[in-house]
């Protein structure tokens, strides 16, 4: 996605703020990184990585393979990946339009709405789960109606896991996409309008492709958050093998009796998510 380093003079708008200036900056600033930045940076990295090292050191390596082969591990892993991916899809479908609304439409109370979007970030996930039960549960405000009208109940189902994960992960997507929308050059949208594009066409054919990197970044954050989701899931969707017991739930339960199994499960979750995220990143870079 990076701009080429040989920009033609006066290229189209993207070039105005893109390639040339940045290339010059990258070349212009050099020399050693200041210690005032380097030291906290290394400490920060250590802070993030050491707990992982702790897991690796304490992992029961001799029994690792045997433990991995247990069917419940794969079952929980599969469920985690499926649910996190579906939750990300839900967040994309609902979150991108919400971000658009926040970034592009001036309406009264917009600041309040924006603050509300962050509620799942600050709400303890367990409380989020209870709140979901109160709304979508069997006796909940909407849940009652869902059950009587459609015979649908969400708690204790895989769909419930997706709902809980989407609830908790959505802010990450909305915030990323809104930021991308605010950073995008709106004049392209005006240009599209003068060419006869309706607002929907503008969004679909101009805005969305322009903010694609931001949407992708948001989707990744969203997916990662959904993958690790625990509190809202166990509260709203319950904990049953095969339908709602995702990896984090399996880890928590294993901690009750068998801390070593919990470490193995955590490592599996980490390894898979890191592998997928690293793979995605490479693909974007090479796609440019």
């Amino acid at each position: 996605m990076d701009a080429p380093l040989t920009p033609a003079p006066g290229r189209s708008g993207a070039g105005k703020s893109g390639g040339r200036g940045r290339a010059a900056r990258e070349r212009g600033v050099s020399g050693r990184a200041p210690l005032a930045l380097l030291v906290p940076a290394v400490l920060g990295l250590a802070f993030l990585v050491l707990p992982l090292a702790g897991l690796l050191v304490r992992a029961p390596w001799p029994t690792l393979l045997r433990r991995l082969a247990e069917p419940y591990v794969l079952e929980a892993l599969r469920l985690s990946l499926v649910c996190a991916t579906l939750a990300t899809a839900v967040c994309l479908v609902l979150g991108v339009p919400l971000a658009w609304l926040l970034a592009r439409v001036a309406f009264p109370g917009r600041r309040v709405v924006r603050a509300l979007v962050t509620v799942p970030l600050v709400l303890p996930p367990v409380v989020g789960g209870v709140a979901l039960l109160l709304v979508l549960g069997r006796r909940g405000l909407l849940g009652q109606w869902l059950e009587s009208a459609f015979g649908v109940t969400l708690p204790f189902t895989t769909a419930g896991v997706v709902v809980a994960e989407a609830f908790v992960a959505m802010p990450f997507l909305v915030i990323s996409v809104e930021g991308a929308l605010r950073g995008a050059d709106r004049r392209y949208e005006e240009a599209a309008a003068t060419l006869g594009a309706s607002r929907w066409t503008v969004f679909r054919r101009v805005t969305l492709p322009l903010i694609a990197p931001g949407v992708a970044a948001g989707a990744v954050l969203c997916w990662a958050r959904a993958l690790g989701e625990f509190g809202a899931t166990i509260t709203f969707a319950g904990n049953f093998p095969g339908t709602t017991r995702t990896m984090p739930l399996a880890v928590y339960l294993a901690l009750e009796t068998e801390p070593e199994a919990a470490i193995v499960l955590s490592l599996v979750l980490l390894a898979v998510s890191v592998a997928i995220l690293a793979g995605l990143r490479d693909r974007w870079v090479s796609a440019s």
């Binding site: 006066g10 189209s12 708008g13 993207a14 105005k16 050059d185 004049r187 392209y188 005006e190 240009a191 599209a192 054919r205 101009v206 492709p209 322009l210 694609a212």
Partner: peptide, 10 residues
Amino acid sequence: VFQDYLLFPH
């Protein structure tokens, strides 16, 4: 025709 042309980069 806009000042920076604003051709859609994608």
